[in-house]
Nucleic acid binder design. Structure first.
Length: 636
DNA sequence: CCCCCCCC
């Protein structure tokens, strides 16, 4: 139907820089851009649209690649009606004053339609800087450009070749050398013809490589030291910092001359106006912000300190927290932001780096949230200065995910560590949760081999495991076996464990209400029950003794170590026998870690259970738990 | 254009 109302005049308003309105427009032409990049896969394919507002058309509208599928699925086609949800004006070629509209978000309102009206074409030139009179910019060049000789390195690219991944194909005037004196550095208060336009501040989350003439107002939320490097082009130096505003954050790096200039100027926590820097795709491996792009300060970058009080509305930092349990699902050696309560803190320790033979100091924390706990390593000065004795809420921004013994977190020296951060509601939530219940909860620890149970394993018989010599190598082997538990040392299923969170050692019951931990060299007035179950599992080919710890023992027996320990204390023999009997009468998949250990001069393969699964474990476990609970109330 | 961040 052709009766959709188009937003007359909106194209001109967009081109004049008023890009906030959500106009309804008609797509009157679609062109595929032959990107001529090195990438033949078509991944960088782009579409250029001609849009009509009923009265005017504009033919240089670049469609964001994430919407390519609209065209490829034939949802967006010639004469479709769309609503423009996010658009920006981009000056692509200042020599000739050409501009384009970047379409970042749009919605197809009506796929099939007839052509509406008889619109005329708007010029492709910079209407913003020509006061909307539509004349070619060459006739009204501004002073900067009038004095500038044509830059040798920047022949205007053909319009169809302009938008690509990466910035190399996108020379803008901002990247070219300005001949008229040193206007690269605007001192506070400004001066000259290259001061910052504070009236047109844009949000950090809208920055992209295809725009220029932007200014951001941002706080330095993290600042690195100057580092030296050496590569094929010789030695160099750099520093990086993170910049935030209310919309988001971005990483920025300065090399060599800019490194010297801006490292001394930018202060951690202060707010600055920043204009004219290069933008490129963020390197996910090293970028701890959530921005798709990162910034490089260049020759033309202008940074001006914000006057006192002017930056009050700019946040201190942007966190993108993931729950601790989610760390288990993330790729190792990437970074993330987490927040939690410090449940325990180790003393300072010293290690020697294998690579450099240098000594490093460290401290380990156990960080907890409502669902899980994880080991966090602090290094050097950060470790020395850390005081976790009051169980503070700590936020980490840009912390590295490691995969030792499950999942761990390890601080970089640019990891931001914040005690009781005020910018997030989580601080209060976690404080209340921890003080009321969290401090006495026993949560799954991602740093205690949690991921071992998740790795894919082959299913083999017990005879195959022995015949193939699994576990005899230097590294452990993981294998699954379909088997039934046939024997269990029920009297030794639980032991009294040191109450210290990171210890795990067996304590000696001194039979006077105190319990001695030799590892901690301390005497406690309490202990924790912990599982270490020796069980024999059997299949049709053989039998094997295995050791079953916490999570798997809970799955095997259907109750917690604390509950089991309570029955043991009560000397409820019949209940324990019933629990064990129920655990033994059906087949399950046991996931095992096989690893040879030396016992005097005998090499023996030790099998540790790292996972137990059942055909329908959840309903079975609940049934088992319900039955046990009906027998006798569990005492805590 | 860097990108090291350590050990069990």
């Amino acid at each position: 139907m052709a009766n959709q109302r188009l937003t007359t005049g909106s194209l001109l308003r967009y081109l004049r820089g008023n890009t906030t309105e959500k106009a309804t427009l008609q797509v009157v032409g679609i062109k595929t851009i032959d990107s001529k990049t090195d990438d033949p896969s078509g991944a960088s394919k782009r579409y250029r649209l001609m849009l009509s507002d009923g009265k005017a058309t504009f033919s240089s509208c670049m469609l964001g690649t994430q919407m390519n599928k609209l065209i490829e699925t034939n949802s967006l086609k010639e004469n479709s009606i769309v609503r423009i949800d996010r658009v920006m004006v981009n000056s692509i070629d200042k020599q000739n004053g050409r501009v384009m509209l970047m379409l970042y978000e749009l919605e197809v309102l009506q796929s099939d339609c007839e052509r509406i009206g008889d619109p005329v074409a708007l010029p492709l030139t910079d209407i913003i800087n020509n006061n909307g009179n539509g004349t070619n910019r060459l006739e009204t060049v501004n002073n900067n450009q009038a004095q500038a000789p044509p830059p040798a390195a920047a022949a205007p690219p053909p319009a169809t070749n302009v938008i690509r991944q990466g910035s190399k194909a996108l020379p803008t005037l901002d990247n070219q050398k300005k001949p008229n004196g040193d206007n690269r550095f605007a001192a506070k208060g400004g001066g000259g013809n290259n001061t910052i336009d504070k009236e047109r501040i844009i949000n950090i989350d809208t920055l992209n490589p295809y725009m220029n003439k932007w200014t951001i107002k941002a706080r330095v939320s993290n600042k690195g030291q100057i580092r030296n490097y050496e590569n094929a082009r010789g030695p160099g130096k750099l520093f990086s910092c993170d910049l935030v505003d209310q919309s988001g954050e971005i990483r920025a790096t300065a090399f060599n001359a800019e490194c010297d200039k801006f490292h001394s100027m930018l202060e951690m926590g202060e707010v600055y106006y920043i204009a004219k820097a290069s933008l490129k795709a963020a390197n996910r491996q090293f970028n701890t912000t959530n921005n798709d792009y990162e910034m490089t300060f260049n020759h033309d970058t202008i940074i001006e300190a914000c006057d006192a009080g002017e930056g009050e509305n700019i946040p201190q930092v942007q966190f993108n927290f993931i729950p601790i349990s989610e760390v288990a699902n993330r790729t190792a050696n990437t970074t993330c932001d987490v927040i939690g309560v410090v449940k325990s803190t180790s003393d300072m320790q010293t290690i020697v780096s294998k690579a450099s033979q240098k000594e490093f100091t460290k401290r380990e924390l156990l960080l907890v949230d409502e669902k899980a706990s994880i080991s966090v390593t602090l290094w050097g000065q950060q470790a020395e200065e850390f005081d976790g004795s009051s169980h503070p809420v700590i936020a980490f921004k840009g912390i590295k995910i490691g995969d030792f013994n499950g999942r761990t977190l390890s601080c970089f020296n640019n990891t931001l560590i914040r005690h009781d951060p005020t910018e997030t509601q989580r601080t209060v939530e976690l404080r209340v949760w921890y003080d009321n219940e969290g401090k006495s909860m026993d949560l799954p620890d991602l740093s205690k081999g949690a991921d071992a149970g998740n790795r894919p394993t082959a299913v083999k018989t017990l005879a195959q495991i022995i015949a193939e010599g699994l576990g005899l190598g230097d590294k452990p082997d993981y294998v699954s076996v379909k088997a039934m538990s046939t024997l269990m040392k029920k009297d030794q299923a639980v032991y009294m464990m040191c109450p210290e969170e990171r210890c795990g050692k067996k304590v000696v019951d001194e039979n006077n209400g105190s319990y001695r931990c030799e590892k901690c060299n301390k005497t406690y007035n309490n202990f924790k029950w912990a599982y270490m179950v020796s069980a024999e599992i059997s299949d049709t080919t053989g039998a094997q003794w295995i050791t079953v710890f916490r999570n798997e023992a809970e799955a095997l027996l259907g109750l917690t170590a604390e509950e089991f320990g309570a029955h043991k204390l009560n000397q409820s023999e019949s209940i324990i026998e019933e629990i064990v009997r129920k655990a033994m009468n059906h087949e399950r998949i046991f996931k095992l870690r096989a690893k040879a250990e030396q016992y005097n001069d005998e090499r023996k393969i030790k099998f540790t259970c790292v996972g137990i699964s059942d055909i329908d474990w959840s309903s079975h476990g609940r049934r088992l738990l319900d039955e046990i609970k009906q027998m006798e109330p569990v005492q805590n």
